[in-house]
């Protein structure tokens, strides 16, 4: 039995200490927004925040997480998808299949906390998540948008909201 702090709540997890944090989140706590993609910290689909830093939860055994460590998953990033990264993602219609996007968003949020005005090189080195649908161009644009480095109108992606107005 391990005690964890997840999304601001203290929870008990009934799993062996060698269970990866990913699987405890998904199977013991029902937080399935964090995804399994590779199990080897290669793809980043399992990215969560541990004390504010992006970590790949598929290689983090529960035994390495202290009860005082603050874990944030995609479900706890904001209320109503209101984090600036989520808003930028919505503004540019970033996701395709969406499976990698929880990890992408968590990695981007951690990047912006660390570097509020990231360069393209910063994005290349921090955003090593794999997306097979190919959303990279929009992920990059959305990070710059969330950082306030560009305004929406300067991005060459014309979208309409459901009511027909320019997004």
């Amino acid at each position: 039995m391990a005690q964890l702090q997840v999304n601001g709540k203290t929870v008990e997890v009934d799993a062996d200490g060698d269970t990866p944090l990913l699987w405890a989140l998904r199977e013991q706590l029902g937080l399935t927004g964090t995804k399994y993609g590779c199990g080897l910290a290669q793809c980043g689909a399992c990215t969560v925040h541990l004390n504010g830093e992006a970590v790949r939860s598929c290689v983090r055994p529960l035994s390495s997480v202290a009860p005082t460590d603050r874990i944030t998953t995609i479900e706890g990033l904001s209320k109503d998808a209101s984090h600036p990264v989520q808003k930028a993602w919505a503004a540019l219609d970033v996701p395709q299949c969406g499976f990698c996007q929880s990890g992408m968003i968590m990695a981007a949020a951690a990047l912006l906390k660390d570097k509020p005005k990231p360069t393209d090189a910063d994005i290349d080195s921090a955003m090593t998540n794999i997306c097979r649908c190919g959303t990279y161009n929009r992920v990059r644009a959305a990070i710059h948008l969330a950082a306030g480095q560009v305004n929406r109108k300067s991005i060459a992606i014309r979208l309409l909201d459901p009511n027909g107005s320019e997004a």
Binding site: R26, G30, L31, T32, G33, T34, K35, Y36, T73, I74, E75, L77, S78, A81, Q86, W89, A90, D93, V94, P95, G98, F99, Q101, S102, I105, R158, L159, L160, D161, P162, G164, A167
Partner: peptide, 24 residues
């Protein structure tokens, strides 16, 4: 013919979109 936003984006922003792997 118009560039409307996708209908299925919201659940892909906050982890609420359910994939086969997520079924309970």
């Amino acid at each position: 013919g118009k560039p409307y936003k996708r209908l299925d984006t919201r659940g892909k922003l906050d982890g609420s979109q359910i994939y086969g792997m997520d079924l309970k």
